[in-house]
Amino acid sequence: MLALLVGVLSSTGVYLLLRRSVLKLVLGIIFLSNAVNLTIFIAAGLVQGKPVFVSEDAANPADMADPIPQALILTAIVISFGLVAFTLALKYKYFSLSDTDDLDELKELEE
């Protein structure tokens, strides 16, 4: 089920990336990075209903979820969050310079 979701997310992401509009590029980035995060999650093995944090006296590895993929995903989310914010700022700048959302319009600008 999740694997299917990854497939859908990443194909949508790629499609959006290939569009000319900058806003869709941002959306594509978000989709793709979420797809990859889910991939990590699945690849590292899903466990249901087990917390990462347990109290000190009950520390039995079988009762815990593997914390590393969660840490990896958290880091990846933070990074992609920064990237998206930066791309949005870039888009604003782009829009205020060219009054358009279309990447190809810029070709005329530079001549």
Binding site: A85, Y92, S96
Partner: peptide, 17 residues
């Protein structure tokens, strides 16, 4: 700080328009 910087910058540019 990072979040506020992003949000402020983006919101301020919005207000220019």
């Amino acid at each position: 700080g990072v979040v506020l910087m992003f949000i402020y910058t983006l919101m301020e540019e919005w207000q220019w328009k």
